[in-house]
Design a protein around this nucleic acid. Structure first.
Lengths: 321, 321
DNA sequence: CTACTGCGAGACAACGTTGTCTTTCGATTT
DNA sequence: AAATCGAAAGACAACGTTGTCTCGCAGTAG
């Protein structure tokens, strides 16, 4: 910037004015400065700028999801990026792998970098530590927070799960198993609640705390080989659904045990049978979360909001046996 | 920081020393400072710190891929994050959607934020503009750059594609179609080259510039309904492979037309028939790119390196008809 | 012709931190 | 006992930028 000022024969402040598009600069001076900027390849130092400015915005937000390579998280990520794009905001990302320690550390690392806000899919651990970062608004996505409050964007987990189970009941199933994720997660609890609401006293075998396809595959095999095997399975999460598909395939029961999964996944329609799912709308969830965050960043100060994104049952075959 | 200094009864500089773990502070003073830091919830302002420091590191890198929600990109992203994690480095991300303008803009936006480096999957357009950001080393991943040079991490596209095609030839196929992405992309060109090398004058019908499943589906249908339909298809990219699968399914030819895809995708093994692919190793690619970048950031100044990550043919059924 | 107004441009300080230099003071050496 | 040394802590400036204040000058009103 010094070089630009010298080369254009003006003061530092005038360069600053031109770079920031202030109108109180004479046209000829402005043109000289522009030329110097272009020829020297000068670029603003955003860090220094934000240090001095009054608004203190870095035009950068943080995003912490379970695992950026999981299709659900990746779709949320992409939707957040799309919202940020139009506002000239960049996105810092991180995967939590269900690790509360990592959740704390990354939230702190983002706060140190003065991100303007944070979108977080909580691990389920207590989030009291977020209170330390007062200047950074936080919006929760996919799961409701524990130990703090804030705008939250979630799927209609209870009613979506209940709808899936009622779909199976309507097809005549009476013994419907539930396979779910860690109970620490609000999504797993809510989907289990929907399952229970739909079945009442007729609830079938329930297996909790499954978190990867392999565990789900083993649990499915155990259920089907056990006494009173279920005639239908409700898989409460996409990795679980995939494990169940693998198990049914291995046992040759893909066409004789019904399956409905929560959360859609790529190619579900090309499997045999095609997998019936309760689809979430991760793109809409990410978009809504980003919108809510930008409202908070802009200064909106109302009470915490809960934004519920509806799910859609997509019958494809596996749940209609 | 002022508050901490006052509360501990020391100078600003001493607080700085304690926060940065310098050893030249008396233990009792250090303890008083630590206590003040904890009770006031003080956190370093990384922007101001980096402004003053000599090394000028933000401990932040940028990453620009085609689309963070594409499984290949997402796996690369995750591997980069893993490398960054151990070094306390955060990752700014962006999707380019094959848009050169966006590539320029985001590279500039990252440079303004003083990212220590950039990992880029180029769109194929001229990258001369990167020269403006001298302080930011760039490593290319997945595709070779145009208009500039730098460390590049790519799959063995030519030999991988040739291997796929030879696999089909060995199964007796003589009329093998090639379906590929935009020729502007080095990957599409290299895979086509491998196809030609393997077939020589016997090269079959070739369709270029397909970039989504729908286009690939239409192209496949046209080929199979045309004169001299191919008996086997080599799909040079994962979204194309999926389009081909859909087309074969629609035409009822899934078991009578052979298919090998370049790049593996989730659930390929659960389709009917399971899809034979030339698997890339996106995790290793992302990891290698991040490693190379961190070496450059650390000051390594050798000539541009090309790191070639081998591909693996995974026969699953669709290519063995 | 003086006094005022308004506008463009520069001087200076400040943002939160750390590099460098200086000061203080107790301990060691001769 | 005087001189020297080293370690610990503070004073000050600087990083690159912009908010605020001031200054000079031209134009206008009285």
């Amino acid at each position: 910037m010094n070089d630009v000022a010298r080369s254009a024969g003006v003061s530092l402040k005038t360069v600053s004015r031109v770079v920031n598009g202030e109108t109180t600069v004479a046209p000829d001076l402005a043109a000289r400065v522009q030329a110097a900027v272009a020829s020297l390849g000068y670029r603003q130092h955003l860090g220094a700028s934000m240090l001095r400015r009054n608004d203190r915005r870095t035009r950068t937000i943080g995003m912490l999801l379970e695992d950026v390579s999981n299709p659900f998280s990746a779709a949320v990520h992409r939707a957040i990026e799309n919202e940020a794009r139009g506002r000239g905001v960049q996105v810092l990302t991180g995967s939590l792998d269900e690790d509360p320690q990592r959740e704390r550390d990354l939230a702190a690392a983002f706060a140190e970098r003065q991100t303007d806000g944070l979108i977080l899919a909580p691990t389920g651990a207590d989030l009291g530590h977020l209170a330390a970062h007062t200047a950074m608004p936080v919006v929760f996505v996919d799961r409701t927070p524990t130990g703090t409050t804030g705008d939250t964007v979630i799927s209609t987990n209870v009613s979506g799960a209940a709808g899936a189970v009622r779909h199976l009941v309507a097809r005549g199933h009476r013994r419907i198993a539930f396979l779910g994720d860690h109970r620490r997660l609000s999504t797993a609890r809510d989907r289990h609640l929907g399952y229970e609401r739909a079945l009442g006293r007729r609830a079938g075998p329930v297996v909790h705390d499954l978190h990867d396809p392999l565990a789900a595959e083993r649990a499915t095999i155990a259920l089907l080989r056990g006494p009173e095997p279920p005639t239908a399975i409700f898989a409460a999460q996409n990795t679980i659904t995939i494990g169940v598909v693998r198990a049914l395939r291995r046992l040759g029961r893909a066409h004789s045990v019904a399956l409905v999964g929560f959360d859609d996944f790529p190619l579900a329609d090309l499997l045999d049978p095609p997998v019936t799912v309760v689809a979430q709308d991760p793109a809409r969830m990410g978009g809504a979360a980003a919108e809510a965050l930008f409202e908070r960043i802009a200064g909106y100060d109302g009470p915490p909001r809960e934004i519920r994104i509806p799910t859609t049952l997509i019958p494809r075959g596996s749940g209609e046996l």
